[in-house]
């Protein structure tokens, strides 16, 4: 393990639940991870796996009711965020920890000029004059490579393209130089050429500013190209964690392996035309009626009786490669 002073975020046994009419949802169930300075941690999974609720829990933005963080700790730069009162939390949110969302149009205020929105965020946390904050806003817009930042600062969100809006969101999120940036599917709504621009921008800025980054995505391509470490989530639980190289070289969990096999490759020149993809049968389970054992067992080719009865512990397979599967040792041989 690296120097502890490098540790920006330390999440231990986080548990977030939702109380609904149809029962109790364990959206995040005993999830732990760390992020170091300048490191990118990717959280991957399909819809409903709990990756976005994990992100919202870090910021304590889970709507309560119906949701509630019921256990664990979220330690940011030595402070457990879950013990803070609302005012203390507000002082940290947007200051030491920021977030960018998938859809920039719904997270920007449509009736406020871009520059003013950044100024507002900055002056909330920094003792700055309006003039200084405005200069900083324009500087941030320049940093995210928006052409003519002074002119763009006077525009409204609808006057910007999708890519430009996401750049403005990034400028706002990084304006206070947070220790940790959480990006929830930041490029999913964007076209592929714009996605490449935004991902390159986020990685450049992260390197420049030394920000820790939690990147939430469903796209394994994005993971491979951006992250140093990866967490795979399924039905609210962390089922695998590894360095990006180890995960792609030898996934230990059958779900991870299934996900990797089910994505078509580009270019497909070495694949016979219209070869069948490897599919994972069935669908993601409902979080209300989770099986007693491993939640993936009903869809798993390797499932044995034990998988249905007992949840497998997260075991270390060497070099911090964790996987929660009774049959992880056999995964490589079988699939």
């Amino acid at each position: 393990m690296a120097d502890m002073s490098d540790l920006v975020l330390d999440v231990k046994n986080l548990r977030t639940v939702f109380f609904t009419n149809s029962g109790l949802f364990k959206a995040v169930d005993d999830v732990s991870f760390t992020v170091r300075r300048g490191e990118t941690l990717a959280i991957v999974g399909e819809s409903g796996c709990g990756k976005s609720v994990t992100a919202l829990s870090l910021l304590r933005l889970v709507p309560d009711p119906p949701g509630r963080i019921v256990g664990g700790s979220v330690t940011l730069e030595g402070t457990d965020l879950l013990t803070l009162d609302d005012a203390e939390m507000r002082a940290i949110r947007g200051n030491r920890i920021s977030m960018i969302f998938q859809e920039p149009m719904t997270s920007l205020n449509p009736v406020m000029r871009i520059g003013h929105q950044i100024v507002e965020a900055v002056r909330l946390h920094r003792n700055m004059s309006a003039k200084e904050a405005h200069d900083l806003a324009i500087e941030m817009l320049r940093l995210v490579r928006i052409p003519e930042p002074a002119r763009r600062a006077r525009e409204y969100p609808h006057q910007l393209s999708g890519g430009m809006r996401q750049r403005a969101m990034i400028a706002m999120a990084l304006a206070c130089r947070p220790a940790l940036l959480i990006a929830d599917e930041p490029t999913t709504a964007l076209d592929v050429t714009i996605q490449a621009q935004i991902l390159a921008l986020i990685l450049d800025l992260q390197k420049e500013l030394g920000t820790g980054l939690v990147l939430i995505t469903h796209d394994l391509g994005v993971v491979a190209q951006t992250a140093q470490r990866v967490i795979v989530m399924y039905a609210g639980k962390k089922v695998e964690e590894a360095s990006v190289e180890a995960l792609f070289a030898a996934p230990k969990h059958p779900y991870t392996r299934g996900l990797m096999a089910s994505i078509p490759a580009v270019p497909a020149s070495d694949v016979a035309p219209q070869a069948r993809l490897n599919e994972i049968p069935g669908t993601v389970p409902s979080l209300v009626r989770l099986p007693a054992g491993c939640a993936f067992a009903p869809r798993c080719k390797l499932a044995i009786k034990r998988c249905q009865e007992e949840y497998p512990p997260l075991a270390d397979w060497g070099g911090g490669h964790l996987a929660a599967c009774w049959r992880a040792a056999e995964v490589a041989e079988v699939a």
Binding site: S161, G162, G163, M164, V192, T193, I194, Q195, A196, Q197, L199, A200, D219, L220, G221, V222, V223, A224, Q225, T226, V244, E245, F248, M260, I263, A265, V266
Partner: peptide, 19 residues
């Protein structure tokens, strides 16, 4: 621009600027 699901593949290189 397509991110390749292989950490050893060449990194994303945006070949076009702008929208």
């Amino acid at each position: 621009s397509v991110p390749i699901a292989n950490p050893h593949a060449k990194k994303i290189a945006p070949l076009v600027d702008g929208d």
